[in-house]
Design a binder for these strands. Structure first.
Ligand code: SF4
Ligand code: SF4
Lengths: 151, 151
DNA sequence: CTCTATCAGGACTAGCTTAGTCCTCTTACT
DNA sequence: AGTAAGAGGACTAAGCTAGTCCTGATAGAG
C-alpha cells in the first residue's frame, strides 16, 4: 500500500508537538498529550535524538528539545532517521538486500529515477510546510474527541 | 525503509518483459526468462489482468498481452494495481485503517500534501520513461549471469 | 470430438517485519 | 542523598508478505 511505518508517522507528530508548548518536554508528557503509547513515544524520541533531530536533556527536569526549527526539517530526513534510507527496490543504493534477479531483470537499475523523484519530493517539503499551509483537515469528518479529560 | 512490495517490483519487471519479444507470452515462460518464482509470476499476472493492464488469452496457446504500450502506463498505476492506493498514513483517503490519534494529532490531515506530491511524481513517470532514458545500470557491477543455459 | 495447455480464483502456510513492552544503567537537577 | 528523567538494549506478539498449491473454466490443436 506504499505506507510509511507508523513509527515514522509518530515521529513527525511528535516533532510537530514539540514545536508547540514549552521548549523542553518529557517523553511521558508527549505521550499523554498525543494519546500515543508511552514506551513507543520514548523509543521514537531516542531514535530522533540519535539522529540529531532533537536534543535530549538528561537528569531531573530533563526532556527533549528541537535541535532545529521545523522549517529546517524536510520530511525525508525524518523518514530516513526512523525507517532508514529511501530505497524503493533492492537495486538502488540504500538497500541492505541484494536482488537475485538483477542479471535477468529488464528494470535493474532503472528504479533510480523514480527513487530520486520521490526523494526530491520528500526533501522539498518541510515539517513547517505541512503545518503552515493547512488546507482544513476536512477530509472525512474528524472525530474531534476531547482530550482535555485525559489531561 | 519506504520500500515498495516485491510484488509490485515483479509486476513492473514483468510488464517490461512483456514489451520485449513476442506479443503473447505465458506465465511460466516469463518466469523462466526472468528467474522469478513461477507461481508468484502467475499471481502477479492475474492481478495485472484484473486491473486491465494486461489482457489474458485463455486456452491452449494462450498467455498474456500488454493492453497498452508502456508509454501509457505510469508507475503509479502499477503500484495501485498491486499494492492498493498510495496512502502514506492512515489519515489520507485510501486507507482501510483509521487512526486512533486523529483527534489529538497535530499532523492529522496534513500528510495529504506529501501524499499528493508522491502520487504526482509517480504518475509523471511511465514505464517507457524508465526503460528509455537509461543511465547505464552501472550502480554496482551487475552480475550479468547468462540465462541462456536455463532456456 | 477429445485432449491438453493455459488462465481464473481462491485457500493456505511459513517467514519476516513491525509495533510495542520492559528492564537496567546512567545522568543531573533539587 | 534522592529522584526524575533519558540511554540502550533485549524481548514478544501480532500482522503482513511472499510464496505455494489446488480445483475449475476456457479454448485452441489434432
Ligand atoms: S533488479 Fe529488477 S527485480 Fe531486482 S530489485 Fe531491481 S527492478 Fe526489482
Ligand atoms: S492522524 Fe496523526 S498519527 Fe494518525 S495517521 Fe494522521 S498523522 Fe499519523
Amino acid at each position: 500500500m506504499l505506507r510509511l511505518s507508523k513509527m515514522t508517522d509518530y515521529a513527525v507528530a511528535v516533532l510537530a508537538h514539540l514545536a508547540r508548548g514549552p521548549a523542553v518536554q518529557t517523553a511521558p508528557g508527549i505521550a499523554l498529550a498525543t494519546l500515543m503509547p508511552e514506551p513507543t513515544v520514548a523509543k521514537v524520541l531516542k531514535t530522533l535524538a540519535a539522529s540529531g533531530l532533537v536534543t535530549s536533556l538528561r537528569g531531573a527536569r530533563g526532556g527533549y528539545r528541537l535541535s532545529r526549527p521545523l522549517a529546517d526539517i524536510p520530511v525525508a530526513e525524518v523518514i530516513t532517521a526512523i525507517d532508514g534510507p529511501i530505497a524503493l527496490t533492492a537495486c538502488v543504493e540504500g538497500s541492505p538486500t541484494v536482488c537475485e534477479q538483477q542479471g535477468s531483470c529488464p528494470m535493474s537499475g532503472r528504479w533510480l529515477r523514480v527513487n530520486d523523484a520521490i526523494r526530491e519530493a520528500l526533501s522539498a517539503i518541510t515539517l513547517a510546510d505541512m503545518l503552515e499551509s493547512t488546507p482544513p483537515p476536512a477530509i472525512a469528518a474528524p472525530p474531534m474527541m476531547a482530550i482535555e479529560g485525559v489531561l
